[in-house]
Design a binder for these strands. Structure first.
Length: 352
DNA sequence: AAACCGTGGTC
DNA sequence: TGACCAAGGTT
C-alpha cells in the first residue's frame, strides 16, 4: 500500500516528465499557460477522446483566440463549429460561460474552484482541472481515469457511481503541494496510457510496487460498475423535401434537450412504435405525395437507439409555405448538422 | 437521485 | 456486432 504519499507523487511526476505527451492544448515547457485554452480543452474533452477533440480545439482557437472573441460570436456560429462533437449542451454552455467570464470577471477566468464552479458547464472535475493546470494551485482532479487508478491502487471493490466520494477522498490524500498542474495531468495520462480499462500495462506503471489490486491480481476487474439499463429503440420518419431550386428543407430544433439548437431534417416524433399513416400526415411539412426511400438510417444516442425511415418529395408551387429554411444541397456543410442528420442527408442523397 | 445528454473507436 | 468506453454536467 501507499505509506508515503510524497514518494508516490514524486514517482508519478518523474514518470510524467519522461513520458510527456505533446497535445494541442498543452503548453510547451517554458510557455505561459492560457486559462482560456485550458478551459476550452477541458470542456471539449468531457466524455470525449483526445483524437476527436483535437481538430475541434485547433479550429476554435484559430477562429476565436480569446474568451472575449468567443463571447462576442453568435451562438449559431459556435453550434456549426461544434457539430459532430456531440453533447451539444456543452456548446451552449460554452457560450454562456464565455459571456459570464466577460461580464462578471472582466474577461479573465477566476483562479479558484468555488468561483469556477459557478460558471455554466463547469462542474467539480473541470473546476479542479482549471485550478491546477491553468493557475498552478492545488486541487484534486477526479475524472474517469483517476477513478480507475485510485480504485486499483487502493483495491476499492465497491461499484461506481456510489463509491465516487470514497475515491475522491482517497485521491485527495495523494495530491501533492508541488506542481499541481503536472500532477493532475500525470494522473490522467497514467490512466489513459498505462492503467487502462482493459489489459493495464502494470509492467510500465510507476506505482506497480504498491498497487493493492495488482498484488491481489484483480487490477483489470476494477473499478466495478453497476449494470446500466438497456437502451430502448425509438423509430421515426424523416422528410427529405426539395424545392424547385434544388434546396432542401431544414429546421432548427428547440434550444433545450436532445440536439438542442441544432439543425435537423424535419421528421415525425421518435417513439417506440414506427409512425403510422396518420402520424406521417400530421408531421409532413407540406401536404404532398411522399415516396419512401429504401433502407433505414440507424443511429445510437447516449440513451436510446434510433431507426429512421426516409420519405422524399418534390415541392411545387407553394413550397414557400413550408416552415423552416431552404438550404442548397452544396451548402449543407454550413449548417449545425449533428452526426445523425449527416447520416440522414447522405442516405437521402445516395438513394433519392 | 436517477435520467438525460452524442459520438466514434475498440474488442 | 453489439456492448463498452472516453479529460462530466445538468436537471
Amino acid at each position: 500500500m501507499i505509506d508515503d504519499s510524497a514518494k508516490a507523487a514524486a514517482r508519478l511526476l518523474s514518470w510524467y516528465d519522461r513520458n510527456r505527451r505533446d497535445l494541442p492544448w498543452r503548453a510547451k515547457p517554458g510557455e505561459a499557460v492560457d486559462p482560456y485554452r485550458v478551459w476550452l480543452s477541458e470542456i471539449m474533452l468531457q466524455q470525449t477522446t483526445v483524437p476527436a477533440a483535437a481538430p475541434y480545439f485547433r479550429n476554435f482557437t484559430e477562429r476565436w483566440p480569446t474568451v472575449r472573441a468567443l463571447a462576442e460570436a453568435p451562438l449559431d456560429d459556435l453550434l456549426v463549429a461544434w457539430a459532430g462533437l456531440g453533447y451539444y449542451a456543452r456548446a451552449r454552455n460554452l457560450h454562456k460561460c464565455a459571456q459570464a467570464v466577460v461580464s462578471l470577471h472582466d474577461g479573465r477566468f477566476p483562479g479558484d474552484e468555488a468561483a469556477l464552479l459557478e460558471l455554466p458547464g463547469i462542474g467539480a472535475y473541470t473546476a479542479a482541472a482549471i485550478t491546477a493546470i491553468a493557475f498552478a494551485r492545488k486541487a484534486t482532479v477526479v475524472d474517469g481515469n483517476v477513478e480507475r487508478v485510485i480504485a486499483r491502487v487502493f483495491a476499492v471493490a465497491d461499484p461506481l457511481p456510489n463509491v465516487k466520494p470514497t475515491l475522491r477522498k482517497l485521491a485527495a490524500t495523494l495530491t501533492p503541494d508541488e506542481r499541481p498542474g503536472d500532477y493532475a495531468q500525470a494522473m490522467m495520462d497514467l490512466g489513459a496510457t498505462v492503467c487502462t480499462p482493459r489489459k493495464p500495462k502494470c509492467m510500465l506503471c510507476p506505482w506497480t510496487e504498491f498497487c493493492e489490486a495488482r498484488a491481489a491480481g484483480i487490477a483489470e476487474t476494477l473499478p466495478r460498475k453497476v449494470a446500466k439499463t438497456e437502451k430502448p429503440t425509438r423509430r421515426g420518419t424523416a422528410y427529405w423535401l426539395l424545392n424547385p431550386d434544388g434546396a432542401v428543407l431544414l429546421r432548427r430544433r428547440v434550444e433545450s434537450g436532445l440536439l438542442g439548437g441544432m439543425t435537423e431534417i424535419p421528421s415525425t416524433a421518435w417513439q417506440a412504435e414506427a409512425p403510422d399513416g396518420a402520424a406521417l400526415a400530421v408531421h409532413q411539412p407540406l401536404a404532398l405525395s411522399w415516396r419512401a426511400l429504401p433502407g433505414l438510417v440507424r443511429h445510437t444516442f447516449s440513451h436510446f437507439h434510433l431507426e429512421l425511415a426516409i420519405v422524399t418529395a418534390q415541392a411545387g408551387d407553394g413550397w414557400r409555405e413550408a416552415e423552416g429554411l431552404w438550404v442548397p444541397i452544396d451548402r449543407l456543410s454550413d449548417q449545425a448538422l449533428p452526426s445523425v442528420m449527416v447520416k440522414v442527408a447522405r442516405h437521402a442523397l445516395a438513394h433519392a
